[in-house]
Amino acid sequence: MKKIHLEIIFGTVFILISALLLAIMAVKEQDRLGEEGRLSAYEGQQRASQIEFGAGIYETNCTSCHGEYGQGIPGKAPCLRCEELFSARMEEIGWQGSLEEYVESVVTTGRQVSTRPELYQGEGLGSPVMPTWSEAFGGPLREDQVKSVAAFVANFEEWGLNPELVPTPVIALPPDDPTALGRLVFVQQGCIGCHTVEGLSTATTGPVLNGLADRAGSTVDGMDAEEYIKNSIKNPSDYVVSEFNDGLMPANFSELITDEEMDLLLSFLLTLSE
């Protein structure tokens, strides 16, 4: 047999095998793209990586107001993993689209005026309750980042509608150090949302707390530092620092903080010297 004949035979066989491979791939592809497979593995994976990406963005940008785990900070910004967002919020605001789109729109433009001033009053006219986040309106995030963070928030639905599923957080610190644990309470209760503590937060809504240990004992006559701080947390209107308005600090911390947490918090705050 001549070389040319072998080439024709093998060439034909190769083309047939190629066509077969292509056909198999096409059939698989059809399953993948078909109506049933639409939310198939690939899209699930894309969704998963979007949520992971969104979590990172949330962690860097949003925790100072919405809390480390989306639990919200009283007086500062609402809870993002609570039932209210998933069951009532869209109706309250009159939103027509999906929840994820709602979150996307809020993140994109921010909130210039509070829709619930009795809960989140912000810092008055001229400074937004929530800043604009989208690059399109002068914020720092690209469109895909905004979408990812919205996907991350929408992912909270499962916990929002089933609060019993929310796990207790793992404490990432040695459990025998009250100062370190108090620092954690300070973070988790959202104190960082309003108070500056050097190396931890930079918020200016409330007084700077560095130096608190030095001055707390001499602020009110007849009250030692511990008493004064405890009282200021539980009844914030009693002694308001002169540059700040009354009513800025939520009055319900006595309900939110357990006695045990209060002790830890105190041991942390009393280390804050100048």
Partner: peptide, 24 residues
């Protein structure tokens, strides 16, 4: 015509096959 052309068609089919096998 016909030897080189046949050979090229053969190489084409071989090339396509190898690429598809790698991806498959």
């Amino acid at each position: 015509i016909p030897d080189l052309l046949t050979h090229e068609l053969f190489l084409t089919s071989l090339g396509i096959l190898i690429m598809l096998v790698i991806l498959y």
